[in-house]
């Protein structure tokens, strides 16, 4: 009997003020997160196991490639190779998690399960759905990033108090990629289009200064690498964990924030077009 519908009074949240998404409320968006929590209450093993992949990568590089390489020099500072790669792996796994959650999972719900069709016949708006799904991807990513950071601390791979900002930075990275991921997913026609996701993500993972410094490239290639979002994500986290922080930090943050906001705007608009026709 006490069921009440809160009007849109919460819609004037910070996010809504920055991106004017029509009819989006933080409270309603949070219901999408509530749904995901309900789903994963049974599937928590999947979430936990997701942490092992970056961990294996870190160990493999520490024991194997790190031992072969020894150290690298970045901006005149000598870094142990594992300490160089670890922050890049954290950034890449934040990207991978966000991309996976926002493409495969959402495509399934959009095209096959018709989950969103049902949700939109309630007071929920496409903006609520988009924002809610992205929030969930971010929360999930936050869990992984936290675990990874703990492992880095335990292995002595964190060299600066700036590292306290790693978690918010990882959330920002997740936001940037998840928002663009959802937007891209609304354009996908079938599963074969996911081949393109792979074709964008893999080269970025391999070339965005994940495994070696930018100076390794010829200058023409450097210019290309600097344009990729993962480069900014990797450099952001690396600056924080190594303590080599300078003004470029703001560029990295701005790049990712703008990317996320544009993605969110496009995603909400496209979802509205696809679902409310």
């Amino acid at each position: 009997m006490s069921a009440t519908l809160h009007p849109d009074r919460e819609s004037a949240t910070l996010l809504a003020r920055i991106v004017p998404l029509r009819g989006t409320s933080a409270r309603r968006a949070s219901l999408m997160v509530e749904r995901s929590l309900m789903v994963y209450r049974r599937g928590w093993v999947i979430i936990v196991s997701g942490f092992f992949e970056p961990l294996f990568y870190l160990l493999s590089i520490g024991v194997g490639i790190g031992a072969l390489v020894g150290s690298v020099t970045v901006d005149g500072t000598v870094l142990e190779y594992t300490a160089f790669v670890a922050p890049a792996l954290l950034a890449s796994s934040a990207m991978n998690g966000a991309v996976y959650d926002s493409t495969f999972n959402i495509f399934f719900k959009l095209k096959y399960a018709k989950t969103y069709d049902a949700i939109l016949s309630t007071p929920m708006s496409p903006g609520d759905v988009a924002a809610g799904e992205i929030c969930w991807a971010l929360l999930r990513g936050l869990i992984y990033s936290t675990a990874f950071l703990v492992v880095m601390l335990a292995l002595g791979l964190v060299g600066s108090p700036w590292a306290v900002l790693v978690l918010p930075a990882a959330v920002l990275i997740g936001f940037g990629f998840a928002a663009v991921g959802v937007a891209a997913t609304t354009y996908m026609r079938g599963w074969q289009d996911f081949e393109f996701v792979q074709l964008i993500v893999l080269p970025m993972f391999l070339f965005a200064t994940t495994f070696y410094p930018l100076s390794t490239y010829p200058s023409a290639l450097q210019a290309v690498v600097v344009c990729t979002p993962l480069y900014h994500a990797v450099e952001l986290i690396r600056d924080l964990t190594t303590g080599l922080v300078d003004g470029t930090l703001t560029i990295h943050v701005a790049y990712l924030a703008v990317m996320g906001l544009i993605g969110l705007r496009v995603a909400a608009g496209r979802l509205e077009k696809l679902l409310l026709t």
Binding site: I65, A67, V69, G70, L202, L206, F207, F211, Y212, T216
Partner: peptide
């Protein structure tokens, strides 16, 4: 192509400089 370029050549530069393999 991507793997060999990134790991073989890019990372390879670092490994070969290290001279441990």
């Amino acid at each position: 192509v991507l793997f060999l370029a990134a790991m073989g050549i890019g990372l390879g530069t670092l490994v070969d400089e290290g001279g441990r393999l």
